[in-house]
Design a protein around this nucleic acid. Structure first.
Lengths: 129, 129
DNA sequence: CGGCAATGTTTACAGCCGTAGTCGTCAAGA
DNA sequence: TCTTGACGACTACGGCTGTAAACATTGCCG
């Protein structure tokens, strides 16, 4: 079990993630609409967003559905899948593949608030009655 | 609390991490000794290790202590600090800063084995009696 | 109908990353 | 002492990233 399971899409970079995030929140948006969401926050120009969109399409992470002379962009991968892959990468690289070690580390370094701990506890109760 | 706390050292890359790992395991080693540990595993030449060591020194992640004609390299940052920073970055980028969300995700996607869950439960019991 | 505004495509370019070769030096062995 | 091997420093170089300008096209407004 636990096949390595290489993802089909190429690696999504930090800047590209910002774009993916707005499309995960609501798909089928144009370049200009995506820019409306992120350009001011990141200090980007529309050109930058266009580049990122193109690269994401090339990487197989976005679909570009023609709509007149423009495109509506939508994610081809689910956010959960991406997040899962990244989490796994981190766990593998830094915690020898043990997710429990990650949780332990978070707990030890007090990256977990009291609320976090309570929430996790609740989760556990649900997962193993 | 919870100051953003920018780390002093520059970002450590994947390849560099392999080098850091052997020096975290045992500090004060020469380039050749580091190479002995990683070159075959990663298919690197000694030259590559030398480059990575230099870059890590420049980045402030390693100290190079002169020892005759060569250097003995040692980490300037603790592994726990690095690991903590990376974990935080992931949690911030992908889980809106909520570590509990990360744990929830791991649980939902079954990235956590039964053993993991048991271990985490034990941890929790210890942390909040 | 003609020019403008919007939109994707192409090109750019500096900086980082992975990977390594070359050069100059110096210590130790012959 | 002369040579050779070990070392760090410098150089290289293609690919990826972040950031964007220039260009081409084309629908729309006047």
């Amino acid at each position: 079990m636990n096949t390595p399971e290489e993802p089909v899409h190429e690696r999504i970079t930090e800047a590209e993630l910002a774009v993916m995030d707005v499309l995960w929140e609501r798909p089928r948006r144009t370049a200009a609409e995506v820019c409306d969401e992120v350009c001011t926050a990141r200090g980007w120009s529309l050109a930058t967003v266009k580049t990122l969109l193109s690269r994401l399409v090339q990487k197989g992470a976005l679909a570009a559905e023609p709509d007149g002379r423009r495109y509506l962009y939508s994610p081809l991968i689910e956010r959960a899948a991406y997040v899962g892959g990244e989490s796994r990468r981190l766990v593998d690289r830094l915690f020898g593949g043990s997710a429990a070690s990650l949780v332990a580390h978070l707990a030890e370094t007090e990256a977990l608030t009291e609320d976090d701990l309570a929430e996790i506890e609740a989760l556990l109760k649900e997962l193993r009655p």
